[in-house]
Design a protein around this nucleic acid. Sequence first.
DNA 1: AATGAATGAGTCTTCATTCAT
DNA 2: GATGAATGAAGACTCATTCAT
Lengths: 205, 205, 205, 205
Amino acid sequence: MSTARTGVLPTRRRGRDRVAAILDAAAAVFAERGFDAATMTEIASAACTAIGSLYRFFPNKDLLADAVFSRYADSMLDTLDVLVLQAPLLGPEALAEALVASGLQQRPYRDAAVALADERNEGPLLRKALRASIRDKVGLILAAATGLPATQAARMAPMVLQAMKAAPVLLREGLDPEAVVAEARRMIACYVAGSMQPACTAAGR
Amino acid sequence: MSTARTGVLPTRRRGRDRVAAILDAAAAVFAERGFDAATMTEIASAACTAIGSLYRFFPNKDLLADAVFSRYADSMLDTLDVLVLQAPLLGPEALAEALVASGLQQRPYRDAAVALADERNEGPLLRKALRASIRDKVGLILAAATGLPATQAARMAPMVLQAMKAAPVLLREGLDPEAVVAEARRMIACYVAGSMQPACTAAGR
Amino acid sequence: MSTARTGVLPTRRRGRDRVAAILDAAAAVFAERGFDAATMTEIASAACTAIGSLYRFFPNKDLLADAVFSRYADSMLDTLDVLVLQAPLLGPEALAEALVASGLQQRPYRDAAVALADERNEGPLLRKALRASIRDKVGLILAAATGLPATQAARMAPMVLQAMKAAPVLLREGLDPEAVVAEARRMIACYVAGSMQPACTAAGR
Amino acid sequence: MSTARTGVLPTRRRGRDRVAAILDAAAAVFAERGFDAATMTEIASAACTAIGSLYRFFPNKDLLADAVFSRYADSMLDTLDVLVLQAPLLGPEALAEALVASGLQQRPYRDAAVALADERNEGPLLRKALRASIRDKVGLILAAATGLPATQAARMAPMVLQAMKAAPVLLREGLDPEAVVAEARRMIACYVAGSMQPACTAAGR
DNA sequence: AATGAATGAGTCTTCATTCAT
DNA sequence: GATGAATGAAGACTCATTCAT
């Protein structure tokens, strides 16, 4: 949907396959090298495509990165949409588990998304907008789950997101997957739980 | 100590000033643009030095980045060394405050360190080793503070470090400084506190 | 006549329309951007045709440019053919008016022709031959109009052509159309008239 | 003076020589191929320089073209400045001779200037401004020489310039140099002379 | 030691042209 | 016949790094 918002939209089957292959390859290369160090040539050859074909569908590197990122972000937003509704019923542990899980979806893409999220690029990139959307939605979820006022939930959202991002980052570094996931859940769960008890909330100050 | 480990060591006063100016400039540029987008030329001109002089002291970009990173990491390690001793006496809140503070030191350098930490470079870079040292030391602190076994503390350390890093990251994005710092502290405090209560620890599984 | 000298000749009505649309589009794009900056893709889409169809009729860019140029040149040659006959009866002013007018025909094509005429391409392009034909014909006209020997008229022809080309060039730059046309006529008229008076002719030397 | 207005100004002898070599090479290549078809790589190798050195002094192709063009235009403007003063004393033939001569200076550069003058580029290029300056100055000269009002002289200037440009253009095409120069002079002389006689002036309408 | 010029591999991107459907 | 996807050779430009002065 938010894929390939510029560039030619493939009309034939062949083109659609190619676009999918390119996105997969781009995700892998961005994940491996980061935005700047990734080269369009490497992505093209990883997708078994000529460089020209790459540019047919994605007119430049930024838009390609946007497409990769939004593939991940879109699915995450869908997951979070569901969580918004479930949140009131979830305890801190279950909520934390769901949040961490949502950040671990889409294996090749999540690592790319993490790499792309740190970009220092400026300009009206889709990535920025999507990041903001995700942050907002996490805020909604926190508000629904904790019963805290929206402003307080919005203050917490960035930190929760960082903790969610920590899981893929640390997995990528080769740490023990079980431990990483467990600790990420625990950190978020404790944070959320703590936010619901006046005592621990006060600790912030 | 780990400053300028390769390249000519400046012997005269003039040389030492020059190195300091270069490091400051490099920190600012790396923080502003990230590793890849930073150019040696911009760093040189920000340091009011000729590009040739830059290379005299830092034979390549990676080593320069290492030097910048280690200036930050060294001071953080010093701070953490002190914390190792104080940890047994600190409650979760005080500990969290100290940890977050340690990650906010050295204004121009901390942002550079954050930018450089995300580099996907490989090879035997000093940065990696320093990151590992910091991680280990945070593990020691956590063990000392919580009384937990070293292995459990080591599992927690990476997440705590991610939370510590979150503060400078979010500050750089322009979020409200007070809120960011408060929430970072709270997250760590809750996590540490939760780790000391059997109940919440269980939540991890 | 010299249209589409290579490539498939369209036999059906549909094909002929398509060729006409392509030529019009090509003229517009060449006029707007010049030969090098014009792209086959833009021309195709301006003609509402697929790039593949464009190449069916015009096997490469140079030949397409030749076709566009010759459409203009052919009509100019026709006009000049008439002038050859009328020339003996025309005074300098009337002759100048007719010459300038002949260069202002075919609005979209004349600008394209001007743009294409300046191309520094080499090789046996049709454009070169046509330019030579036009030059020769203008020489004939001048000889007929002035009564000068053919060699002298041939010396003058290139300059007269340049003056004729000046009108579309200056119009394209946005100068006042009336003034441009009037001065172009005057320049040619004066030149022709001067060539018929021994006195002014001598000035050349 | 107007050379290399951006890019590094060479401070050492070596750099100054290099800049001169680059300009010469660029003039030759632009003259040979035109702006678009000229490649920076070819210019660099014609100047016996690495591509990087080319970009050190001329940060992009447009600026390089500007520098080449202005080298020609500056000297032409100087020549025309003198002509402004002499014009009242000059008859049409002498004036025409001087004007044509001014357009034939600086052999490698004049051909480049002719090629660059036809560019369809937009944007605030120096070339455009210089062209306008030259046009204005020719207007001044014509006014001074003919005694006509400035507005009328300004109408004539573009045509005179086109005629001046015709000489290098036609020489480049390999026509007989003597004939070309003689006819260019005659055309301008007749035009100027004609503009001073009410009769021929009327012919414009 | 310092300076800044020189180098050239490598990057993104474009576009004429070909080909499979 | 038409369509649009595929191709890859260039081209403009950057920048880490080396070297002569």
